[in-house]
Write a protein that binds this DNA or RNA. Structure first.
Lengths: 190, 190
DNA sequence: TTTTGTGAAGCGCTTCACAGCT
DNA sequence: AGCTGTGAAGCGCTTCACAAAA
C-alpha cells in the first residue's frame, strides 16, 4: 500500500505491474471488481489510476477501512521481533498487547505496548477488543494457546508455529510455515 | 514431513488431513499424481499409505531428495529466532551459517552454526554451497542484501522484509508479508 | 468394509483480446 | 494514441462421487 503514496500522479496498470509483480491484466481486472469509488464512478482514466481515488476504493471494497487491533502471543525471539517492528507498515492495524506464560518476560521485556501474563488473555482481549493474534509460541504449546485465544473471542490467528491448529469456525487462521517456503524454493530452483 | 515419521503404520488420507489441514480428497489426488513408487507400484492400499513407501515417492517427485543448505541473513530478533529454531522440522534443509553487517552481533550471539560478517557472504555461500537464504534484515536494507545474495550465487530467498525485491531471474523469491496476512484475516473475519 | 484412485464438475484466478473512453 | 474495462477462454487446484482394490 505504501507504493500508492508515490505522489499524486496517476499510476498506469503497467507501472503497478513493475512495482508489485502482478501483471497489468490482473491489476486492471482486480480493480474493475472494486466497482468504482464511493460514488460508483470509474477509478481509472486514459492516464491511469489516481492514487487518492484508488486507495479508498480498495480499502472500502476489502473491508479495510476499520481500524483493527492485534496482539502478539508468545514473547520469545520471534514474538518480541514483531512486538518491536516499530510503527511499521501495518497500516490500519494497531498492536495493542503482548502475552506470555512466563511472567519474567512480560515484566522484563521493554515494549511499546503493555505486556500481560497469559492468564489475563481473556480479560485483556475482551477489554481492548483485540481481533487478531500473532501466534509465536513453540509448536508444542500452539494448539493450547490457540484454544485459549478462541475462548477469549479472538477472530483471527496468524500462526507461526509449525503446527496445524484446530480451532472453532469462528476463528480464521493463516499459517506461516517457513519449512513450506523452503520446500517451495527447493522445488522452484530444481 | 516429520509427520510421516509417526511410526511404521500406514496412514490413511483422513489421518493426513487431520495432520496437515489439506482435505483427504486433495491428499489422495496429489498422491495419485506421484505415479507410484520407484517401481511404479501403487503407494496406497485399503489400509492407507505406508510412510516408508510414500516419503521417498514424494521426495523423488518433488526433487526434495537432495539435502540443501540455507543461511540466515540479518541477525536481529527475527533472524536470531530462526537461527535457534533448534534442529527443527526443516527436514532436508541444513542451516549452515548466519550473517550480519554488525560484527558485534556475529561475535556475541550464541548460535548453533557459525556466524559471519556480511562482507564474507560471497565467500561463505560459495564455499558451503548454500542455496537458500532467510532474509531477515530491515526493509530499508532488504534490496541491497538481496543483490549481494544474488551476486553470491544464492538460488532462493525467503523474504521477511515488507519490501518487493528485484532480483535476477536466477533467484527465486518467496515473500512472507505479515501485513498481508493481517489484511487477509481482516477480510476473512468481515 | 474400509480406503484408495480417478473421471467429472466446480471454482477462482490469470491471460487474452479488443471495444470503448478520454 | 494510450490506457482502461471487460467478456471469453485458459489453467490449476479442489471437491464430488463412486467404481475398484485390498
Amino acid at each position: 500500500m505504501r507504493i500508492l503514496e508515490h505522489s499524486g500522479e496517476p499510476l498506469t496498470s503497467a507501472q503497478i505491474e513493475a512495482l508489485t509483480g502482478w501483471s497489468s491484466n490482473t491489476i486492471r481486472k482486480d480493480i474493475s471488481y472494486l466497482g468504482g469509488d464511493e460514488t460508483g464512478a470509474a477509478v481509472g482514466s486514459s492516464s491511469g489510476y489516481a492514487p487518492e481515488v484508488l486507495l479508498p476504493a480498495i480499502s472500502r471494497a476489502l473491508g479495510l477501512d476499520r481500524r483493527r487491533k492485534f496482539c502478539v502471543v508468545g514473547l520469545g525471539r520471534l514474538g518480541s521481533a514483531y512486538l518491536n517492528s516499530g510503527t511499521m507498515e501495518f497500516g490500519g492495524f494497531e498492536l495493542a498487547a503482548g502475552f506470555d506464560t512466563n511472567v519474567n518476560r512480560t515484566e522484563i521485556l521493554k515494549s511499546p505496548v503493555p505486556l500481560y501474563p497469559a492468564y489475563k488473555m481473556g480479560e485483556v482481549i475482551g477489554r481492548f477488543e483485540i481481533e487478531i493474534a500473532l501466534l509465536c509460541v513453540p509448536a508444542e504449546n500452539a494448539q493450547a494457546a490457540a484454544e485459549k485465544l478462541a475462548a477469549s473471542g479472538i477472530r483471527g490467528i496468524v500462526n507461526f508455529a509449525p503446527q496445524v491448529l484446530t480451532v472453532p469456525p469462528s476463528v480464521a487462521v493463516r499459517n506461516v510455515y517457513v519449512a513450506d517456503e523452503l520446500r517451495a524454493l527447493a522445488i522452484a530452483i530444481n
